[in-house]
């Protein structure tokens, strides 16, 4: 009976492997440490292999957003339209900005949509890990797929808003021009920038959930500072040059100006719009200066944000399932 209290050791390696320590056994058969972070090139390959997942995840999420609403997918177009209507009412009608600037409403809408793209990508990125823990704990895939997918969702939403925007621009007697082609590279660069920020915030948000409480305030500050609804150039004229330069590098302003120029190159033409003041004495957003190196600024922001964001996110890859 002594054999019964002395159970057969099923763990012990047999035959040729007898006597090996667990570590030696693992090495001999090429086992790897579970949940170990893959190398950066391998991670990029894994992520590339999941590109179909990223795009169908984004589409599925976008569609699911309005499943409980009666009007359904119509809200994708209604939401940006209503946004524009509110801004037109407040800034165009009540604050009378429209009197001096024929393009003001188009100028405003471009700014709002472009800024909202960054804003919502960052907000969605912050929650992308913590809101999808179920998925992360159930299936294995490179986690960077999530913040990237959430940025793609926001990009799809922006493209729908763009259709509304084109209608508004045409209704304001602005003719389509060759500069409209610049919309594509501007969007590509901004998407890269947003993806980078979304990945940074995804890692921060996964560790400290407090940050999602703080984000709306930070983003709102950024919005008012960037001059989405009014031109800030009049206010910063008195600043020292160094601060004006720093200010001109604000990525939100860079991407908004690029898009505004693409849609309405005329609004940057000083001869056509010499500038003026509204009833309250504020400078109107006309005849803006587009820095010569604006594409360099846009490209730098895009690459720097994306690379830093990607590496920063990857560094913590093995810990996202923890919650």
């Amino acid at each position: 009976m002594s054999t019964l209290s002395d159970p057969v050791n099923l763990s012990a390696p047999r035959g040729a492997d007898a006597g090996l320590t667990p570590k030696q056994l693992a090495d001999k058969y090429g086992l790897s440490v579970s949940g170990k972070r893959p190398s950066l090139p391998k991670y990029i390959r894994q992520l590339w292999a999941r590109r179909a997942f990223i795009s169908s995840f984004a589409t599925a999420r976008l569609v699911a957003q309005y499943t409980t609403a009666k009007l359904g997918q119509l809200w994708q177009v209604l939401t940006p339209l209503l946004n524009c209507a509110v801004f037109y009412l407040v800034f165009g009608v009540i604050m009378k900005s429209r009197d001096g600037v024929p393009v003001y409403i188009a100028w405003l809408c471009v700014g709002v949509f472009v800024f909202q793209f960054s804003q919502s990508a960052i907000q969605a990125g912050t929650r992308s890990i913590s809101d999808n823990l179920g998925l992360i704990r159930a299936l294995h895939f490179p986690r960077a797929a999530l913040p990237i997918a959430f940025t793609v969702i926001q990009l799809q939403q922006l493209l729908i808003s763009m259709v509304v925007l084109v209608a508004i621009v045409l209704a304001n007697d602005i003719k389509p021009a060759m500069t409209w082609l610049l919309i594509v590279p501007a969007l590509v660069l901004q998407s890269l920038f947003n993806t980078g920020l979304a990945m940074v915030m995804a890692r921060v948000g996964a560790k400290t959930s407090d940050i999602s409480q703080l984000m709306p305030f930070l983003l709102r500050t950024w919005m008012y500072v960037s001059g989405v609804m009014y031109s800030v150039s009049g206010y910063i004229k008195s600043w020292p040059t160094i601060w004006q330069t720093v200010y001109s590098w604000n990525p939100a302003t860079v991407y908004m100006d690029l898009m505004r120029y693409a849609f309405m190159p005329d609004s940057f033409d000083k001869a056509k719009y010499p500038g003026g003041y509204d009833a309250a004495g504020h400078q109107l957003p006309t005849a803006l200066n587009l820095p010569h190196h604006i594409w360099i600024m846009a490209g730098t922001w895009a690459i720097v944000a994306f690379v830093i964001g990607f590496v920063f996110f990857w560094k913590s890859e093995e810990e996202y399932g923890r919650g």
Binding site: P13, R14, G15, A16, D17, T21, P22, K23, L25, A26, Y29, L31, S34
Partner: peptide
């Protein structure tokens, strides 16, 4: 009693 292929080793 021959060598088997390990798949999970907890050490």
């Amino acid at each position: 009693n021959q060598a088997r292929v390990p798949t999970v080793v907890a050490d």
